Computed example of a mutant assay.
Amino acid sequence: MPTDLLFWLLVLPGIVVGAYAQSRIKYNVAKYSRTPALSGATGAQVARYLLDARGLEQVAVEATEGVLSDHYDPRSKTLRLSQSIYYTPSVAAIGIAAHEAGHAIQDADDYFALEMRNLLVPVVQLSAQIAPWIFIGGLMLDLPRMAWIGAILFGASTFFALITLPVEIDASRRALDQLVSHRIINDAKEIEGVRAVLRSAAWSYVAAAVSAIGSWVFYLILLFARGGRNRS
């Protein structure tokens, strides 16, 4: 099979799923950002309430720049919400804020998948910079061991994408459970709105995993094909 065709067969699914995920995120976040939360609580207020209810008063909640730049930083124990989430009393805002609070609760619970992902962060950051050069250099210089080191580093990024899936899905599950159990949302339409926002965000992580797997398999096939030619 031609290399170009193989590349697209393996990488295209991730691109398609990624495009679908982005369209769903934009649609649902835009739709439910215009839907007021019946409680009148902003994203920041919801995050603070859920953290305090879990005994996590030491976790700070801050506003940050950017669009959908919301994240939890386990190193500084800080939950950062984009300004449109931090200050807005909308269904989308409280859903996203609760999701990030879910990560802080995972951290407090020593959730294994989150701990594993956190350990991989420096490795993945390094591999993203050097893996392509090592892999390509190994192929061009006909140094199989060097190319395999590059492929293994690519594998770390693939594993990171895979382990991110259960982390994000669990955080969304915790978010919805906490919002309902604390009666922050109890209207059926609000619940469905939060679920739609969280579900669409999950698709972006599915896309990342599919893309990472496809790319890694392509690199491995190149290596095995090169090895087969060398033996012949």
Rank of each mutant, 00 (worst) to 15 (best):
F160G: 03
A44V: 07
S33K: 09
G18W: 09
M1V: 13
K31E: 08
A188W: 09
I185H: 03
A201P: 07
L68I: 14
E65A: 12
I15Y: 08
E100V: 00
A19C: 12
H71G: 01
R173M: 11
V124K: 09
A131M: 08
A208N: 10
V11A: 11
A30F: 07
I184Y: 01
Q106L: 07
D187T: 12
L141I: 02
A151C: 08
R195F: 08
A92T: 10
R229G: 01
G18T: 09
F218L: 06
D110K: 15
W203R: 14
I105V: 15
Y205D: 09
G214F: 05
L51T: 12
A53T: 06
I94H: 10
K77M: 01
G228V: 06
D170P: 07
V210W: 00
A63T: 11
S211W: 08
W8M: 11
A37K: 10
A156R: 03
Y205H: 13
W148S: 12
W133V: 06
F218Y: 15
R174P: 04
L120H: 07
R183A: 10
S200Q: 10
P74T: 03
A101L: 06
V167M: 06
V17N: 00
Y27S: 15
Q58M: 09
T42E: 08
E190P: 10
M116I: 10
V194P: 08
Y205T: 13
A156F: 13
I169R: 06
N186V: 13
D142G: 08
L12G: 04
S232Q: 13
I96L: 02
L5Y: 14
M146L: 15
R183W: 04
